[in-house]
Design a protein around this nucleic acid. Structure first.
Length: 399
RNA sequence: GCGGUUGUAGUAUAAUGGCAGUACGUGCGGUUGUGGUCCGCAAAACGGGAGUUCGAUUCUCCUCUUCCGCCCCA
């Protein structure tokens, strides 16, 4: 019997787990600040529902499939958006919801891609360009709080279609867009040669033109309007006409947020993947917009302080008083652990779990009604008086 | 999924066709109320399966896993 996690899955413990918990907290706080309401949905759904109506065959192979005892054909969710079909029923628009949770994809793994990962989505069902800007503002706020330097790139799917039409390209549009999307990764010449077989090399030349050139297209107004509203939010973006992001899904503005930083531990590994991505799409005939954060990538880039001030109360055979003191500190929202044992063990324990403060509760302290709070970094002890609980304790004794 | 690559205690490593060692960490003790020392003791590993062999952690094959690249990524 093996205790190893299966391929593509992993445990998060210790510092990594702490950091992830802190990031989740920041995400939730920020989403709620922008008026999104939470949702929790099942991990398992009917396979048919997960697959969707117009998903192609490739996508189906990435879904984890399972069957219950009733022989129902089921699958693990690989994202959240399809479940919105159910959530949005009978909702007044715009409906704004956020969701954090695990999604599963049976696809190739690499050092920062797993088969189970935590995704956090915010979506607005029933949206306009103004909501696109709102979502970008929320995104900037999250990334700033996490200390991640980033750049927002905006593309527009309708604009790309308009250009394809102008060029008279009707066939293989999806393959062409897929090639175009690689423009920021691969050299231009390679893309052009790939596009030769579709006679679409000229597409690349157009996309290389300065932003002003695109003003003549009617769909450019989505970009210019977004720009206007982003100014109100004091955020900036780069118009990148070659940005495609996926195939069938998005219909207007698409967002991609990238960083040029390397991983936090200064290894020279550049994160190639986008950290945040989203865009506007049509959902049940309703114009909507949304964005999705990958927790794993945020976690490897975030520069946040996740170590909290923690107290270790050491009971030297004075359990009742130690617990009374713990109660008092916890009422003040301090993080408190109790330890029953010898001082030297207690201090070693405090070191190994990074407690910042230690309080001994013994005969001496109880008699003098004075507790010393020991700072584990400096080693110095400072006297602090904890009135209330000991008055209470005495009162109880007196009765 | 394809091609290459990897696998020894929790972690990092060593050696060997014949009892698998070391370090850190963990547990217990040496300390009757003060740590990041020191000392002692202990638990703990050859990814799994088959084959060759008197005997395989070591050689062969299969499988799983790791990492890298490719394909793909709603």
């Amino acid at each position: 019997m093996t205790t190893e996690p299966v391929k593509g899955f992993k445990d998060y413990i210790g510092d990594e787990a702490k950091k992830r918990a802190e990031i989740k907290k920041i995400l939730v706080e920020t989403f709620e600040k922008y008026g999104f309401e939470p949702a929790e949905t099942p991990v398992i759904e009917a396979e048919e529902f997960v697959r969707g109506e117009n998903a192609n065959d490739e996508a189906v192979s990435d879904i984890y499939k399972l069957e219950d005892k009733g022989k129902r054909k089921l699958a693990l969710r690989y994202e959240f958006t399809f479940q919105l079909k159910r959530l949005m029923q009978n909702k007044k628009l715009p409906y704004k919801r956020y969701q954090l949770g695990e999604v599963f994809r049976d696809e190739p793994v690499s050092s920062n891609r797993f088969r189970q990962f935590v995704q956090s989505d915010v979506d607005i069902i029933g949206s306009t360009i103004k909501d696109d800007a709102e979502i970008l503002a929320l995104t900037s706020e999250v990334l700033n709080k996490l200390g991640i330097k980033f750049k927002i790139y905006i593309g527009n799917r309708a604009l790309l279609n308009e250009i394809l039409e102008e060029l008279g390209i009707k066939s293989a549009q999806n393959q062409i867009l897929r090639e175009i999307d690689k423009l920021d990764k691969l050299p231009e010449t390679e893309i052009k040669s790939n596009l030769k077989k579709y006679k679409a090399e000229n597409f690349v030349n157009i996309l290389k033109k300065p932003e002003k050139y695109f003003e003549k297209y009617k769909n450019y107004k989505d970009v210019s309007e977004l720009k206007k509203f982003c100014k109100y939010y004091r955020i900036d973006f780069v118009f990148q006409p070659s940005l495609v992001r996926g195939l069938s899904y998005y219909n207007k503005n698409v967002f991609e947020i990238k960083t040029h930083e390397s991983k936090s531990n200064s290894e020279k590994i550049q994160i190639k993947e986008t950290i945040v991505g989203g865009g506007s799409y049509i959902f049940n005939g309703i114009q909507s917009t949304g964005i999705s954060f990958g927790l794993d990538r945020l976690s490897s880039l975030a520069k946040i302080d996740y170590e909290k001030e923690k107290y270790l109360i050491i009971s030297l055979d004075k359990d009742k008083e130690a617990i009374t003191l713990a109660n008092e500190l916890r009422e003040k929202n301090k993080i408190v652990n109790l330890f029953y044992g010898k001082p030297s063990k207690a201090l070693e324990y405090a070191n190994s779990y990074k407690f910042s403060k230690v309080i001994f509760v013994g005969e001496k302290e109880i008699k003098s009604k004075k507790f010393m709070v020991k700072d584990m970094e400096t080693g110095k002890e400072k006297q602090e008086v904890f009135h209330s609980s000991f008055k209470n304790a005495e009162r109880k004794k007196a009765r």
